[in-house]
Structure formats: structure tokens, C-alpha cells
Design a protein around this nucleic acid. Structure first.
Lengths: 222, 222
DNA sequence: GCAAAAGTGTTCTGGATACACCCATGA
DNA sequence: TCATGGGTGTATCCAGAACACTTTTGC
């Protein structure tokens, strides 16, 4: 029972941290400080260590970039390895993970790379002209598609909000993710079972205040 | 711009070849000839080579096990690497791919490992008692779930049938994959747009013959 | 003619869509 | 009292579920 002799393939994790800010879907990207693609924007990523699980590598990446240690929604997306030249330095396959986080959580905790780290609007990153390092534009496109699809048949949208939230806010999140406006009454019926009224209200200007809800945890034991 | 120094991680592809035979969903498995898990059933797999794409590795695996070179439906499933001890010989991450194939295609073409290769009923492989090598039972479970889900909102079921088929046969495929009976009239309405009548018919016993259909290719340009 | 399975038309119903209206607040 | 956005009820539409029926074959 001998050991494997591994091929010279590097295993990396690429990490997509999404949030919603200023009514836009944004993703964390960092400008590259070295060749290749020096100066261009890239997704954060790390090399997976021999004694490290994939999801641990993803969490490590999150912590290194943002300082966030909390448990956040984390999901493996896809493994990119159909282009042996995707990294000019050698053969790299990369497993992409995405995490969703409410913007409220980011505020205080910004880690070591604070100055360089920035959340950028996904739509702009995907535009024709924009140059993005490696195949990261394709990865980003894939992730956005996944978020859109899952918004339709799961409750991932809730992960963009803190514990407590109002329904108008939740609806806005859905509208941003789906890219279309929704009817208020219908929207509320459709998510009704996933929320519970906290009894609190939020006053917000010259109009009727909103009730504050939280998730119905019974419905979130995936 | 130096080369990466890869960690000692082996990259493998695990391959799930599904077919429907005797009205059962079956998967290709091979008994292991060496330790670890000697004698137990395992999914076929290969080590990914440095100059080889992931999907190529999957196709190579298919060809090695069955001799099938044709283009078949192939889909990346998931990458398993959250257990550093999943293979006792060292750190291995494995990217699982699944392929679907009509049983008619298998008949003639069985490759070199012909005697050992067998299609086994998925339900049985997943049963409590059955021992399966590595984490392959979990992978199989994941794949079956994926097939079930995709049967509901895509046309993957068609890949279990040859070019030409009858609607009762197609319905049976759906019923096997979904694990429940369907109403004939409703089923036909739901898949109507995906098929075209070839004009041919198939006589099949003491009852009205079935029309023979083929896919409506307009609807299959995914 | 009869059994068996193929094939088709019609009703029923629940959920999504669209619209209309009422409510609480600040200024 | 009025503009603003929060909150709710109801009619409508449509796809899928359920059921009933007709058609074509072999014996």
C-alpha cells in the first residue's frame, strides 16, 4: 500500500464574497500586486494546504481578507480545471466557493488588507470592457447565475440581511437579486412562512413604520 | 514570476456512469483489486494528469472502463475534499463527474475490464448494509439527488433513451427517476414541446401500437 | 368480442399575477 | 391635511392534478 505520487497540480480555492450595498450586488475583489495580471482585479484565493480541508481553505481566505471569523453562508460552486493554462505559472485547478454576508457585518471588521479590499458592483465587473485577472470573470458570472437561480427556489436571499429586518428591505433584496420588480402583496404571501414578527417596529420617515421580522428558524433547518 | 510549488495533494476524478436497465436506475461500479477497501465496490476513477483537463480525465475514465468514446451527457457534480483522510494513502481531492447513457449504447461496447465491470442498482448500493469503498456511497447519494432534481426542471431524462423512443417509454424513465407514477395525459402535455413525431410506429403486443418520437432539437440547444 | 395498453379531451384547483384599497407617520 | 411608503384583501389567470373516455392492436 504505497503512497500516491501526486502530479504537479496545484489546488487552489477562489473565494467570492457577496454583499448588498447601496442597492447593488457587490463582490469582494483585490487588485493583484504581482504578475501575472498585475494591477488587475482578481478574486481572493489561497493555495489549499496538504492538511487542510477545502472549506477550511475557503474560510481561511475569508478571514485573511476581511478578518471575519463568524459563520457565514458558504457554498461550493464549481471546480475550474478545463483550461490547463488558466494560470501562466503552472497547472492550477481551483475550487470556487461563495459566501453571502449582510453589509452590516462588514462595517466594523475589516482585516489586514483593509485599504486594498473593496466591494465592487457585480454588473460592472461583468461588463465587456472591464478586464479581470485569470478566468475570474467567468467564475463571477457563474456565481451570479447561481445566486439568481437559488433566489427563486431557496431562501439564500435572507443571508444578505442581519437577524432582524423589515419586509420592504427583504423585498428590495429579492428585487436586486432577481433583477426585476415584485408585487408587494404577492411577495409577502410567498415568503410569509419564512418570517416571524418580532413585535418591534422601525420608524423611517414620513410614513407608516415597518414591522420588524426575523427568520422563522423552523424553516431554516436545511 | 516563479513557478508554484504544489502541496502534496493528489487530484482525482471519480466517475458515475448511470443508465436505466430492467426499469431500474443503475450505476457502473468496479470491485477494488487492491487495498484499501480490497474487494469492495467503488466508483471508477483516475488520477488527473498535469497536462490534462478535468473533463478529459472524466472521458478517459469512461473510455477505460467501457470503451465508449462517443459524446455522452457529462456533468461535473461536486468536489470532495473536506475529509483529509478520505483516502488512507494520502491527501486526495476528487472531482466527481456523472454521465448518462442509454442502455442500448452499452450493449456492444464493453471495454477491457469487461468481466469485472457491472451496472448495479442504485437503490441497493445506497442501502444501509451495503459496504462501499471510500466515501463513494455519499457521492452516489449526491448524484442520485442531482438527477432527481434535474429531472424536474430539465430534460436530462432524455439522455437515458436512444435517438428514437416512444412516449410510454419516456414516461417510464421519468417515473423511475422521480420514484413516483405520473398521469399519462399530464405527462404528455408537459413534455410535448420537447418531442417530435417521426411518423413511425412500434408494435409491441396485443394493444394499440405506440408512435415513435425523437427529441425536438430546437429545444435541446442548451 | 375482449383484454391491454396507447392516445386524447375536459374539469378542477391551488398558486402566482395583477390590481385596488386602507393605514400610520412626519411635516 | 397631505404626501409617502407600509400593509392587506380580492379578482383573475394559468399550469398542473385528476379523471373520463376513445382508439388500435393480438388473440
Amino acid at each position: 500500500m504505497g503512497k500516491y505520487i501526486p502530479e504537479k497540480i496545484m489546488v487552489a480555492v477562489d473565494f467570492l464574497l457577496f454583499t448588498i450595498e447601496e442597492d447593488q450586488l457587490k463582490v469582494l475583489m483585490v487588485p493583484r500586486k504581482e504578475e501575472p495580471f498585475k494591477g488587475q482585479l482578481a478574486l481572493p484565493g489561497v493555495a489549499v494546504k496538504e492538511k487542510e480541508t477545502l472549506s477550511h481553505a475557503a474560510k481561511r481566505c475569508l478571514a485573511e481578507e476581511t478578518g471575519i471569523q463568524d459563520s457565514v453562508y458558504l457554498e461550493q460552486l464549481y471546480t475550474w480545471g478545463d483550461d490547463c493554462k488558466r494560470d501562466p505559472r503552472g497547472r492550477v485547478i481551483s475550487i470556487s466557493y461563495m459566501a453571502l454576508i449582510p453589509r452590516e457585518k462588514i462595517k466594523e471588521k475589516i482585516g489586514k488588507r483593509v485599504t486594498e479590499v473593496s466591494f465592487l458592483e457585480v454588473g460592472q465587473m461583468l461588463s465587456e470592457e472591464k478586464e479581470i485577472a485569470f478566468d475570474h470573470k467567468e467564475i463571477l458570472k457563474y456565481a451570479r447565475e447561481r445566486i439568481r437561480n437559488k433566489t427563486e427556489y431557496t431562501t439564500i436571499a435572507f443571508h444578505f440581511l442581519p437577524e432582524e429586518f423589515t419586509l420592504p428591505r427583504l423585498q428590495k433584496i429579492y428585487e436586486i437579486l432577481l433583477g426585476k420588480e415584485l408585487f408587494k402583496a404577492n411577495f409577502r404571501k410567498s415568503i410569509q412562512e419564512y418570517v416571524v414578527d418580532t413585535g418591534k417596529i422601525q420608524k423611517d420617515g414620513a410614513h407608516r413604520p415597518s414591522k420588524i421580522y426575523r427568520r422563522n428558524e423552523d424553516r431554516f433547518s436545511e
